[in-house]
Every structure is written in C-alpha cells, then in structure tokens.
Design a protein around this nucleic acid. Structure first.
Lengths: 338, 338
DNA sequence: GTGAAAGCGCTAACAG
DNA sequence: CTGTTAGCGCTTTCAC
C-alpha cells in the first residue's frame, strides 16, 4: 500500500532491534514495558501492518483455509459459507472460496491453486464420489473435511447426514399420506448425497413391495422446461404419480414452478417433498415440505473438525461426524384423496 | 502437505541450479529445451507445487483480492460473489471473502486483516456512506472498487446505478397504476444505495404534490413481525396506503410474508414493488415487480475496474461506472381499483 | 543459457 | 530482556 513500512523501519524509529518489534507484535511476554510502549507508539505513528505473507513463509502456515463449493449462489452453499466464514474468522482464519460450477476439472484446478497458496486446510462441499483430485489430497493426508457430500471411501474426514435414511424418512412421510405412486427427481448421482438419496428411494420402493418403474425416476436436465416435460409424461391416469420426491430443495422449487406453469396444483393435485431445508423453503408462499440436513450445524461442525485436524500432527486422526436427517412437514404435501 | 518439496529439491534432482527451475516454472524464454524438459520431468516426478507465499513475498503481490460484503447469504451478494469469483479466477486471482454482518466494526477488522494478508485489491459491496475505515483506504489510494453502495465522496472508485432515478422509476410505475398513497419501507440509510432510494421516494412525492406523511415511511426493524405491525397501522380507510415500495427485494419478500400472514392479498389489496431483482423475485410463486440494478453486470464491471486499478501505477486513475436502473414489471403490482 | 548471490519481511534460536 | 544471525522458498540482477 503506501510506502511499505516494515518492522525494520519501525525498529529504527523506536531505536530497538527488528527482533524486538517482532516480539511486541507477537505479544511475546518478556519485553520491558517501556520498550514495548516505544515500539507500539512507533507502529502507531508509522501505520505499520505486519506482513502476513512474510510471516506465513517462515511459520509454514497462512491462517487461510480454502472452501470449495459447486455453486456459491445456491442458498445451501451461501448459507453454509456464511457460517464457515464467520466462525473461521473467530478462530483467526480467512477463507478463500472457490466455485467449481460442479465441474470436476474446475475442482482439480481449485485444489491446485489452493495448495499453491498454501492454505492450512480445506473444506469441500461438493465432491464426486470418486473424484481423483480429492482422493489424492486424502492420500497425502492434507487437512481436509468434506461436508454435504463425501468420497466413497471411509478413510477420509467428512460431516454428512445419513442420506439413505433421510430419503427413507421422506418416503415414509409420503407413504403415510397414502401415496403409492411416488416419482423421484434425481440430481447428479456422482455426488454421494444424491446417490444415497436415490438408493433410499429405491430401497423403500422395494421394501414396500411397490413396483419399481423406471419412468418414475427423472434424471434429465434440471430445468423448468425439462421438469414440465416430465410432468407431462403420458401416464395412464391410474399410473400417474401422485407424489414427487425431489432430491433437493432447489430442484423441488423448479418442480413447483413447472407444476404451477402447467396448472397443476400443489398439494391438491400432487404432493412434493424436497431435501435440505434451505431458507427459502420456509417462505410462506413456498412452504415446502422437506428433510433438513441441518446445514448450518453441518458447516459449523465441519469447520470445527478441520481446525482439530490442522492442530494435530497425528496424521491418522479421524474426525468425521454424522448428523441425523429431520423431516419438516409444511404445505406441499397432503394426504392422497381417494 | 507431504514432505515439502521445494524448487531447490527439484534443482538437485534435475542437476541444474535453483534459478533455472524458477525460470522454467515462470516460462522464461531463454532456457534450452533439453534442460527445460529435465526440469519439467523432475517437477512431475516429485509432485512439486511452487510456493506462492514465497513468490508473493518478493513479487510484492499475492494474486488474491478481498471481497467484503454485508451478508453472503443474501442472494444479491452470493450472486455477485459468484460472478466475481469466477471471473477473478479467469484473470488469475483468488478471492478471500469477508462477511461483515453489516457491522462497521467488522468491516474495519476485515480491512485490517486483508491489508495484512497483502491482497492486491479489494471489492466492497456494503459500505456506509461515511465509513472511516474505507475512507482511509481511499486516502491511501489502495486499489479498491465499491459496488452497490459507495462512500459519499467523489474521489473514489465505484460501480453503482443511479438509485435516485431507480426510485423515481419505481414510483412512476406505481403512480401510473393510479396509486397515490404510497408507503416506503426503508433499509438502513447509512448505505448510499438505500439513502438515495429514500431520496428518490421523497423527491417524487414532492414533485407530484402529494402530501408527505411520515407515517408512510417505515424504518423499523426489518422482520416479518415488524412489517406486520406496520401493515396494521390504524390508518383511516381513506388514508391506508395502496402501494408499498420496498427498498430492496429481500425486504419486499418479508413484506409479502407479512401481508400474506395477515390475509392481505397482493396485488389485489396492495401493490408491492422491490429493488434489485434477485433471482428469487422471478420465481413464479413470487413474481415480484422490481427495479433491476443489473447486479451481475455490476459485479463483473467492478472486478474489471479493479483489475485496471491493480495494473496501473497511476494513483489518480478513476475507474467508476454508472449503470442504469431498469424496471421489471411482474405480478405484485396492479392498477388501483376505484 | 545458466549459476551465484542478494534479498522480500518476518520468526526463531542463540548469545549475552 | 534484547540484539545478532540464520533462514522460510522464491525472483532477480549480474556475471560467466
């Protein structure tokens, strides 16, 4: 910024050695009060701000963590990011955010630049089950905690909910309301989260002895137009799904849009249940029934675990946590009218 | 990460000097092809990633910019952040995000840590008109571009729309629909954006020869409960506002919630117009009439300007830009029924 | 073309 | 308590 005042300049002005300046900015205890004050005053007068870059270089830590998400404009991620940024700061960390747009290639690049920047640890909210870039990080035992999604291996650190169970809970809710013909809108199953939810759906269908119909599972483009086409599938009347389980709230909202545009009423004509409980789902004009994955708590825990990881030398420490899914019944699901 | 491989290690392995390694990772031209390849191979084999911290230290730049916003979970900011993060990466910058929770004190601290981290520049989306911390940055000619809000002085860099005009446009829309009794829901006027919009409201009221009523302006707590109380103000029937101008979309949504909970229909009973055009406002179950401030374009421009600023030594360069407000008419505003 | 050497601004022993 | 001395891992002259 202005004419680069360094600890050396401060030292000269205060008439002490540069090391002493370093001692006072680091609150080292054994500095005579009078010299401490001299230094402090010089710092004040010269507008000195310690250079964290230099500091990082020989401390081998930067006080920065990397946060990688698939889409920061998705409320799920912006809401978790808020928690992470806030609590990280309280613990003395800044956070660099990378947005991958759900591309594996971008994820790879993001990891590379973050490694280059020597972040002390990473939090990853979107990672494919078999992502090779993240696998390598794990193999290297780089301090890393995944949340929301995780790799398909156990020797890694993550905070997730039991998504199979979450899907089961969602299905049970629909079944309890009398629905039997339940369609599923799948997101990209490269993510464990979405893969597990799909499995929970399948599992429930099977356990209930319901016929499995491939045409009840949508895995096309996640746009209003695509979902409109799905809703307009030429089912026989008695085969038409009466309930739709969307693999997350964003998708559920899209589905609600599609239904609305087609004059299909929710929940009168069809019931809809989502997953995640993003804050918009609670809005009175939406009132989406959904399953909470306690995302703020998840974010908070993930950071807490990461900090543990960064503070230990035990390369074998496991810090994963599992949260419980929780159903939130609102107005988009209703009993099936006979 | 793993056992810290440095350019020195690479140099030894490749049988060249460390300086040469530096030359190849920086794509310096005058390196013999054969030695370049030797080095590249050693880098590959050893899994070497250049230490950007060391690099930053003597290049006096970090390739990192700071982004400060009032609330990253607000879609306006997460959507602009997405643009900024994406385009910054394309230009070789990472971004550290600070979330101030709209507190001036947090803003001050955020600036301090970002300065300490030696970011190459800053983008600030939320700054009070007279904020002293940011004033100091401007005085120092630190590379800084504000967007959305700005300081109340002209010798600073910003990208904003003409908010007075935007408010005028919003008011005109309501007036054209026959509304005369128009209430205004004010946000915190420490922000230029919200200050200007309030002025645009006042100005229009005056120019139209409409009576100015203090009880038409709400500047209480921005919660559903607070807005419910406002809607329940014991106005005489003929004094009851027929239209509400909310100073931004978030607030408009809260107002819609409040109205809904009170059984007040929009737009049948009251018209509502917002400001910002966040993506949720376009959702079919919301369909909020609003004024766009082209926020993605604003973010993109702000970053572009910042990059200009960071690439010049001309400390007097001014890079501000003004965008035009644009009304988006949807379903929350309707002609006044006589 | 390539090596040697001098820092970038700080922290961390090690003396005294 | 405080100064001196090495680096941290790079980039960048300046020679050869």
């Amino acid at each position: 910024m202005n004419e680069k005042v360094t600890s050396n300049d401060v030292a000269k002005k205060a008439g002490v050695s540069q090391a002493t300046v370093s001692r006072v900015i680091n609150n080292y205890s054994f500095v005579r009060e009078s010299t401490r004050e001299k230094v402090l005053q010089a710092i004040e007068e010269m507008g000195f701000t310690p250079d964290q870059v230099a500091r990082s270089l020989n401390m081998r830590k930067t006080g920065t963590i990397g946060l990688i998400v698939g889409d920061i404009s998705n409320p799920f991620f912006s809401e978790t990011a808020k928690v992470i940024i806030g609590e990280a700061r309280e613990s003395g960390f800044d956070v660099i955010i990378s947005d991958t747009d759900h591309s594996d290639q971008n994820l790879g690049k993001a990891i590379q630049t973050l490694i280059g920047k020597r972040v002390d640890g990473m939090l990853i909210g979107s990672v494919g089950r078999f992502d090779t870039n993240v696998q390598q990080l794990v193999d290297k035992r780089f301090p890393l905690v995944m949340y929301n999604t995780r790799l398909d291996r156990d020797d890694c650190n993550y905070v997730v909910i039991n998504n199979v169970k979450g899907a089961r809970v969602a299905m049970k809710h629909l079944l309890d309301l009398g629905h039997q013909k339940i369609a599923y809108i799948s997101g990209n199953t490269k993510y464990s989260t979405l893969y597990d939810r799909l499995n929970g759906y399948h599992e429930t269908i099977k356990k209930q002895g319901l016929p499995f119909r491939q045409d009840y599972v949508y895995d096309g483009e996640l746009t209003v137009a695509g979902l409109q086409r799905f809703l307009q599938t030429p089912w026989q009347d008695e085969e038409r799904p009466t309930a739709f389980f969307a693999s997350n709230d964003q998708i559920a909202l899209l589905l609600m849009e599609a239904a609305l545009s087609l004059g299909i009423r929710v929940p009168e004509d069809i019931s809809i249940i989502g997953f995640d409980n993003i804050s918009y789902s609670a809005k009175p004009f939406i009132q989406l029934t959904t399953v909470s994955q306690q995302h703020r708590r998840m974010a908070s825990l993930a950071l807490e675990k990461l900090i543990q990881l960064m503070n230990t030398d035990d390369k074998t420490l496991k810090v994963s946590a599992n949260l419980e899914p929780e159903i939130i019944v609102r107005n988009t699901s209703a009993a099936l009218e006979q």
